[in-house]
Design a protein around this nucleic acid. Structure first.
Lengths: 311, 311
DNA sequence: CTGAAAGCGCTAACAT
DNA sequence: ATGTTAGCGCTTTCAG
């Protein structure tokens, strides 16, 4: 029976007979026993840091389609940006003998990718790059997106452009600040370090940073905010302080927000190709499973500027 | 070793000795083998219909906290409102011998809850109620929420109040329409059937329904829209047609939307206690696992009206 | 090509 | 209280 169901060499008669009985009995192999024996299961895990961040949710879609088509079921794990929870999920993933993991690391330094690798589970990194960078990855060109955003602010006539970025030890935080600097340099502007805020990619952080910038003697007239949540925080600060966008100041964010066309103002943003990111990562994982020795691949996707009202 | 690790009767000496060696070797039991033997695993599945709908995402949080505390890992499955995908996930869930399932059914009629139940996996229904209603469930009081919403529209002086609801074969669609009717009846108003639109809980559907209502000879001056996505669609229709909210018409939606305070206009809504829903459902599941014969419980939570700008 | 037997790593039942 | 054995349901040798 095992041989028939797994498509090994069996003659036709046998095959037919087995199939018949299988159908009749509605027999389904016990996958647990199968996994115990083969040491692998037909499932993938997708580890995301924040189930409530629409950016990550959009990535899921792209991965799902590939997984389903290849016959894998995709289980999601929400780490809440907490390395401890992430570690707990890693254990559960190993326990389940998942065939592979799509990982958006909670932390670039603490995330124990090796724990999975050592146990034979291939990992593809998404959005952020965990420490040992010898695994497949799909990232977005962060400096490019930041440059597009900053250039837009320059183009609409901003003189003093602020940058609210995330933690500098993250690829995203550092890369986006880098792009901002590059854009200003190219335009022959000097960077006023007082206008650079290193925050935390959270709504609250964006709010606080904006309040600080607003309190400056010479406040900025343009804001590049390095992710969606912080942009929301910035908008709140503006509303609270009666600052009009795009009247008084302009703003460009990184990451799009669903329904953002209903915002006041509608946000101009460097949008990431979220579906594509999930899709490519899943395809990398598939390849890695089929050919463990394939050369490591680092895919870099390009963000695009979506111009709306805010700048 | 098995006995020590599972806390059976063993004397101290033995326990200590085993523990020592376990630590030294970094031994971790193979959960697959364990599950094969015990026919159950320390994991739960949470099945949601749309990973991009913030309402469902918020529910996840409440469930996670309970699961983690009780030592279960929570795996998410996104069905995309598709009964076929849902069925595929059900198989994967059975295969994994999950200890229980938190289910937001993709369809109230087609969802094969029995498939899980027959295989000994307890199920708690959330938000929607699948056909055989002899399982634990956590629902929101849909009629009440709709009444609160409609009463608000009455209170702000609306004369012709429309209702855009979801499919009537769903508890949510039917219940919300029911509450709308009840509120009007209580106020001594007659329901103009031309103002009742049965749609599909999607953005597109909300848009279309609103366009139809707008085209009426005597268009409504108040809109009760029965979920968040359709409210977004309605807002789009208004924007497109140059209808001002709350100037020209008022609107109250069901379900809150994250960041909706940044909307133009900020939405007044009957908000569901999402965290609480996930939390209660998870606690019901826990109880059901510990005591399979406990009486079936149907929890009904109350929505609250959040008044903002739109009505 | 097929039948038989061993064994994946664990727990539960049976002895002692 | 502990040592021993059988067996969960599969796949993979090894013979034939």
């Amino acid at each position: 029976v095992s041989r028939v169901l797994n498509g090994k060499d069996v003659d036709e008669d046998m095959t037919r007979r087995v199939r018949e009985v299988v159908d009749e009995l509605g027999y389904r192999p016990n996958q647990l026993a199968r996994s115990l024996r083969t040491r692998t299961a037909m499932s993938w895990a997708l580890v995301i840091p924040d189930i409530q961040n629409p950016f990550f949710n959009a990535i899921v879609r792209g991965a799902e389609d590939v997984a389903r088509e290849a016959g894998y079921s995709l289980m999601l794990a929400n780490t809440d940006e907490d390395p401890e929870r992430e570690a707990a999920y890693f254990e559960a993933i190993v326990d389940s003998r998942a065939a592979g993991v799509l990982l958006i690391p909670a932390s670039e330094r603490e995330t124990p990718v090796d724990y999975l690798l050592e146990r034979g589970i291939p990992v593809v990194a998404l959005d952020r790059h965990p420490q040992p960078d010898d695994i497949d990855s799909v990232l977005v060109d962060n400096p490019l997106g930041a440059r597009l955003a900053t250039e837009r602010l320059l183009a609409v006539g901003c003189e003093r452009i602020a940058c609210i970025t995330g933690p500098l030890q993250t690829t995203t935080g550092a890369g986006r600040l880098e792009g901002y600097r590059a854009a200003l340099a190219e335009a022959g502007r000097e960077v006023d370090e007082a206008l650079v805020e290193v925050s935390d990619f959270r709504e609250e952080g964006g709010y606080t940073a904006t309040m600080e910038l607003l309190a400056l003697d010479e406040p900025p007239d343009g804001y590049f905010v390095a992710n969606n949540l912080m942009a929301v925080g910035a908008l709140e600060a503006f509303t609270e302080q009666g600052v009009e966008v795009p009247g008084d100041v302009k703003l460009v964010s990184f990451d799009d927000i669903p329904f953002s066309r209903l915002f006041r103002p509608r946000l101009t943003a460097a949008a990431q190709p979220t579906y594509e990111m999930g899709n490519r990562a899943a395809r990398l994982l598939l390849r890695r499973i089929q050919d463990p020795d394939a050369p490591v691949e680092h895919v870099v996707l390009e963000p695009t500027l979506v111009v709306r009202e805010s700048a």
